[in-house]
Write a protein that binds this DNA or RNA. Structure first.
Length: 945
RNA sequence: GCCUAAGUGGCGGAAUAGGUAGACGCACAGGACUUAAAAUCCUGCGAGCUUAAUCACUCGUGCCGGUUCAAGUCCGGCCUUAGGCACCA
């Protein structure tokens, strides 16, 4: 069979017959399947595109046969940097290059037989389309959702261009390697942060995969906390900090403002001015990458000013540091070094006080649980973590009566320091006398337990000291002490396991892994009215207090920021705004849209980083829509994300020249039922698109607040070396080559069979050949077809099972197992001398969504009507049930035999059969049968003793 | 560091809801057909042990423990890899 000929033949038939053209309306139930439209790059279609387009194509073909009105559209997301770069180099308009690339892509897609509705095709670069992107921008503007703001951008001083974060990856310009710096620029912004909560809540009205939802939730980054106002000493000024832990306010020992904070200049004292200015200057030189680099040592300077802590009127110093970000919260923080790692690090470096306000609170369990009938005793205790003089071992004592293993510990006497108490206890309990105490740990903790050896409840405040022995010099210990404890040295790797009490394990952990800030939960201390409370109660109480005293309130913050909507590029949608000296920024009149990109031959950016459009004076100079005076156009263009934020709406009514899409059309299609795309787009693209839709919904322009129901993401097709395909690695597979050599159907089957659709999978040409063999087998099977109709009796069961399996799998992305099921059916047909027409026909129909060309051809040769006009086969549940089945027989959970059972067999019969098996008898003989578990149709397990 | 996903033969991967691990395919080996090759067909294919060959047995789904009659699947604790986020107070 000449697959080139038949592929062309059927592609033409489908197109001429308009089989895949969707109508807006009719009696059929609608179903909207969408794949992310591609950026038509010069490289042509990637085998990765083929994977997801085939998957959704299979689903679309099945759904159509099941009687749905399926919309499966395709278009082009063609604005973007590569076309612009190409234009700069070759001095041709990017739209020419885009036209070429689209032609290539479309040809490739057609050669693969995808059932797209090409009548709805468009490109985001078509003026008929971007007219509406511009129109929607004007709606954003008119509703106060678009505004201008000055924000820092990545700037390459060498190329003199603004770089996207992607192009500035690693802090250097992608093209020339120059260090990227920050430059202030006035940009259009969309108030996306206003929609944070709606975007979060809206996820409940979607059926996105859980990991997709999580990606969105993380990106939105909601955190609940409080605002706290701090007065600045000696002024009438106040600044506000955002904190999620207002309960630790008593532990705030300093404040930090972002270097960009508006108060910095005002509050800095003369004495510190020079230093502060210097620090601010250095920050500007750094780019975002350097500033946020992990493990970077904290830097900062003191402003000379003091803030007043509202809860206790303590004066605490105000620093500036770049670890506080101007763009999050209020751009200023209260620092609680005892309980925040960053603050701790900063405090250590600048020698600032660290004040504990939360203490870990251990409560005994089991035999050491507090007893209500026992006396409560309270004491301060020292715990000594003492290292061996030469080895990596720690000194512990084992209680001879109870077997407890602990560090040396004991009560602190009146008038005694913690260190003195430690040295005394060590001497008394172990006799070691050559001790150096290195330090006392910063944080005390509580331990509460019933002390069996004293028969009282103990409530301990533990002070931990860390030290070592200089030598093993020992003095004699009292016989009484010797009878209570025996000393032991425990290796550091076993220490945590061997110690008996959680509190001592905790001491060991902090000793071995570093002390740092105390970030765990506990009870409040040193916090007056909060003392003894847990975290949540303390937060609630503090918020109430702050609110009452008008120096703070509950506050929710989101990481998600407003959308920077300007790009200093040529190849994007022009922003339809005009600047007039008299009237300020004015929107273009809607009837003047679209604002077309000019036809010129130079696309170089300007010296000062303006969009290339700024050089095109004819285009820039215009008149003010308001006063008619001379004015200038905005020269920035929209980001790539703009056009793709609403394209799925346009597909519902692709050629409407009155509206972006009619409400009738949108109400008919309602929403995208199934949206497939790459994992890399699940955070940003999806969030932008949802934001766009929610905005339109709020102004009555779309029928639903969420217009996408299910979102799934596909895995990548990797090179055969298991790495991402790239030219430089030489592992790129061109789908054209595969189609030419093996045919479109083979490529489609292979890409569906290669592995779990949602997982990455490496390319394997060997495996592809296996799929070719499968197709060849299907073709050969035609020779076995006899004149009988109806299914062969002995195949009936398998056929019904296969229909069920394929139907389910194509609806749940189990493409690889669907292909596998079809291979099993084909093998079964192959085993027979002859097969009926219907045996063969069902195989063709079930395989058709994945391999449409060859199956239509064989089907036609057999004299059936076209598959694309047929109904999807149904299965009879009754007939999918096996009459006979082989199940395993286990003895004590180990497989010993298998038996054939029939559906009609009762449990008793099955039990009987199982027990009669030779090998079962071997393992049950002479043993008591405790019970026999029969799981119908699955397994028998005989439990013996 | 945090979040997410995933670790199963030589390889890609199967395994409803805990119930015969390795479906299906690839690769490999042996054989048939052929003058020969390709194509096709047949047989074998986790490891070990045993056997003349079978049968049987033991181990086996990243590691350690647990729950259960029964664990790739559930629970606890780790390790590794990939992707995303990253000083978010």
């Amino acid at each position: 069979m000449n697959f080139k000929e038949i592929e062309k033949k059927w592609q033409d038939i489908w197109e001429e017959g308009k089989y895949f053209v969707a109508q807006n309306g009719g009696n059929k139930e609608k179903y909207y399947i969408l794949v992310e439209f591609p950026y038509p790059s010069g490289a042509g279609l990637h085998v990765g595109h083929v994977r997801s387009y085939t998957a959704q194509d299979a689903m679309a073909r099945m759904k159509r046969m099941q009687g749905f009105n399926v919309l499966y559209p395709m278009g082009w997301d063609a604005f973007g940097a590569p076309a612009e770069q190409y234009a700069i180099k070759n001095h041709i308009h990017p739209k020419e290059a885009v036209k070429e690339n689209i032609k290539t892509f479309k040809g490739q897609m057609k050669s693969l037989g995808f059932s797209f509705d090409w009548t709805r095709e468009f490109s985001t670069t078509d003026p008929e389309y971007y007219k509406w992107t511009q129109w929607q921008f004007l709606q954003f503007y008119k509703h106060g959702m678009a505004y201008k703001d000055t924000i820092p951008v990545n700037w390459c001083p060498n190329c003199k261009t603004v770089l996207s974060n992607e192009d500035a990856a690693g802090g250097v310009c992608e093209r020339c390697g120059t260090k990227v710096v920050q430059k202030e620029k006035s940009q259009w912004m969309l108030r996306m942060s206003d929609y944070s909560e709606d975007l979060l809540q809206g996820l409940n009205d979607t059926n996105f995969a859980e990991k997709v939802k999580l990606g969105q939730i993380n990106w939105i980054g909601k955190s609940t906390g409080a605002h706290v106002d701090f007065k600045i000493k000696g002024t009438d000024k106040t600044f506000t900090v955002f904190t999620t832990r207002c309960d630790t306010l008593y532990g705030a020992t300093y404040c930090v403002l972002a270097p960009e904070h508006e108060y910095v200049d005002e509050i800095t004292t003369e004495e510190h001015r020079e230093e502060v200015l210097e620090y601010k200057k250095n920050c500007l030189l750094k780019n975002e990458m350097e500033r946020t680099e992990l493990n970077k040592e904290k830097t900062g300077v003191f402003t000379g000013a003091y803030a007043i802590n509202p809860v206790n009127n303590e004066e605490i110093p105000i620093y500036i540091s770049d670890y506080v970000l101007a763009s999050y919260g209020t751009g200023s923080i209260m620092a609680v070094p005892a309980h925040d790692e960053r603050d701790y690090e900063f405090a250590k470096k600048f020698n600032l006080p660290i004040k504990q306000v939360i203490a870990k609170n251990f409560v005994g369990t089991g035999s050491s649980a507090l007893r209500s009938d026992k006396q409560d005793t309270y004491r301060d205790v020292v715990v000594a973590v003492i290292k061996h003089p030469t080895e990596e071992k720690y000194l512990c004592v084992k209680n001879n009566k109870f077997g407890w293993i602990n560090f040396v510990m004991g009560g602190i006497e009146k008038e005694e320091t913690v260190v003195d108490a430690a040295i005394r206890e060590i001497k008394e309990e172990t006799g070691y006398s050559d001790i150096v105490i290195d330090h006392e740990m910063e944080f005390v903790y509580f331990d509460n337990f019933y002390a069996a050896h004293k028969d009282v409840n103990r409530h301990i405040t533990a002070h931990t000291v860390v030290g070592k022995l200089k030598s093993l010099e020992q003095v004699a210990i009292s016989s009484e002490e010797a009878s209570i404890n025996s000393l032991m040295w425990i290796d550091k790797d076993k220490l945590i396991d061997e110690l008996s009490t959680p509190a001592h394990k905790y001491d060991a952990e902090r000793t071995l892994n570093g002390e740092g800030a105390m970030v765990e939960d506990g009870v409040h201390v040193n916090s007056q009215e909060l003392d003894g409370l847990n975290k949540q109660d303390a937060i609630d109480k503090m918020i109430a207090w702050l609110t009452e005293h008008k120096c703070g309130e509950a506050k929710v913050n989101y990481k998600m920021r407003d959308w920077i909507f300007s790009r200093q590029r040529f190849w994007g949608e022009p922003i339809p705004m005009i600047y007039c000296e008299k009237c300020g920024w004015q929107p273009m009149k809607e009837e003047d849209l679209p604002l077309l990109l000019p036809d010129v031959a130079e696309y170089e950016p300007t010296e000062n980083g303006e969009s290339p459009l700024a050089n095109i004076t004819d285009w820039v100079n215009t008149t003010c829509p308001c006063c008619g005076g001379a004015a200038r156009r905005e020269t920035d263009t929209m980001p790539n994300w703009a056009g793709s934020s609403w394209y799925f709406l346009r597909f519902m009514d692709a050629h409407n020249d009155k509206e972006f899409a009619s409400m009738d059309a949108m109400k008919y299609w309602q929403r995208v039922d199934w949206y497939n795309g790459g994992m890399e787009h699940t955070a940003r693209h999806l969030l932008y698109a949802r934001f766009w839709v929610q905005f339109l919904y709020n102004y009555g322009l779309v029928p639903n607040k969420e217009m996408i129901w299910t979102r799934v993401s596909h895995g990548m097709v990797l090179g055969s070396n298991n790495e991402k395909m790239s030219k430089s690695k030489g592992n790129v597979v061109n789908p054209d080559d595969i189609v030419r050599e093996y045919g479109a159907d083979t490529l489609r089957v292979y890409e569906m069979f290669m592995g779990d659709y949602q997982q990455d999978a490496p390319w394997s040409t060997d495996s592809l050949r296996g799929c070719k063999r499968f197709i060849d087998k299907v073709i050969r099977l035609k020779d076995k077809v006899n004149n009988e109709s109806g299914y062969s009796k002995d195949l009936e069961n398998l056929i019904h099972k296969t229909i069920k399996k394929v139907t389910n799998d194509l609806g749940t992305m189990g493409y690889n197992t669907a292909v596998s099921a079809l291979m099993i059916l084909a093998n079964a047909l192959d085993e027979k001398e002859t097969i009926t027409r219907d045996d063969y026909h069902i195989l063709l129909v079930l395989l058709n969504p994945i391999a449409p060309h060859v199956t239509e051809e064989l089907n036609e040769q057999l004299g059936y009507s076209r598959i694309c006009e047929s109904e999807w086969p149904k299965y009879d549940e009754e007939k999918t049930i096996d009459n006979e089945k082989e199940i395993g027989v286990q003895v004590n959970g180990k497989l010993r035999a298998s038996i054939k059972i029939s559906v009609s067999d009762s449990e008793e019969v099955i039990k009987e059969k199982a027990l009669q098996q030779d090998n079962v008898i071997k393992f049950t003989e002479g043993k008591e049968i405790v019970k026999v578990i029969v799981i119908p149709g699955r397994i028998v397990n005989i439990v013996v003793k």
